[in-house]
């Protein structure tokens, strides 16, 4: 059987274009998923003039602003991971990937810490619709950060094993697509939930 990539069913190296299209489509459904959550949030936000409702704690605006910065930095690192790989520097690409993951995890830890304090102040999933929405929306995003970090770590492992090169950077590029999406959501959510 001839082995031109598009004509091969036996190759287990996915063709770059089709994989990126697949990832873009996946990100498309994810975006609609968040659009659904955000419109639900807005329905309650617009319907309730007192927001947050009386007796519910204020959200940590400053420390979360710092956390936003952390996440944005991690996206910059992820870009470096791709550009260094494309330049043929596989070793330093792995290093940037590691940094991306560390910053992603740091974001999660900081957020976890804030959540513990919020629970202590009386904001829980069931304390009000406000609390329910906060933990659902921010929690679902947190899960995406976790999934994105896991993906970056997986790609890092394969990168260390020497599977990627300037000629075949696909895995790292896919991870960056997903990570970009997860990071790009955050400033919007921060504005919507913490500032608005």
């Amino acid at each position: 059987m001839t082995a031109a990539p598009a004509d091969s069913i036996a190759s287990d190296r996915p063709a770059p274009l089709v994989s990126k299209v697949g990832m873009a489509l996946f990100i498309g459904t994810e975006a609609m998923f968040f659009a659904g959550l955000i419109s639900a949030y807005l329905v309650f936000r617009v319907g309730n003039p007192n927001w947050p409702p009386a007796g519910q704690p204020r959200l940590p605006v400053e420390s979360t602003a710092f956390n936003t910065l952390i996440l944005l930095l991690s996206a910059a690192f992820c870009h470096r991971a791709v550009s260094t790989l494309r330049a043929g520097l596989a070793r330093s690409s792995a290093y940037w990937l590691g940094l991306t993951a560390v910053f992603g995890l740091f974001f999660l830890v900081l957020q976890g810490r804030e959540w513990i304090r919020l629970v202590q102040f009386g904001l829980t999933l069931t304390s009000s619709v406000y609390g329910g929405l906060f933990y659902t929306l921010i929690g679902v995003h947190g899960l995406h950060v976790l999934a994105g970090t896991a993906l970056v770590l997986y790609v890092l492992k394969r990168s260390v094993e020497g599977r990627y090169s300037a000629a075949y950077p696909l895995g790292v590029e896919l991870a960056r697509m997903y990570w970009n999406f997860v990071v790009a959501l955050w400033p919007g959510l921060y504005f919507l939930v913490y500032l608005l």
Partner: peptide, 25 residues
């Protein structure tokens, strides 16, 4: 299917939470 299912999943997450976690969405 693709571009309409996301919002329903969002709704279903909240419905599930209403059922198992006691939220009141």
């Amino acid at each position: 299917f693709f571009f309409s299912v996301g919002p329903l999943i969002a709704g279903a997450v909240m419905l599930l939470l209403d059922n198992v976690a006691g939220t009141g969405f």
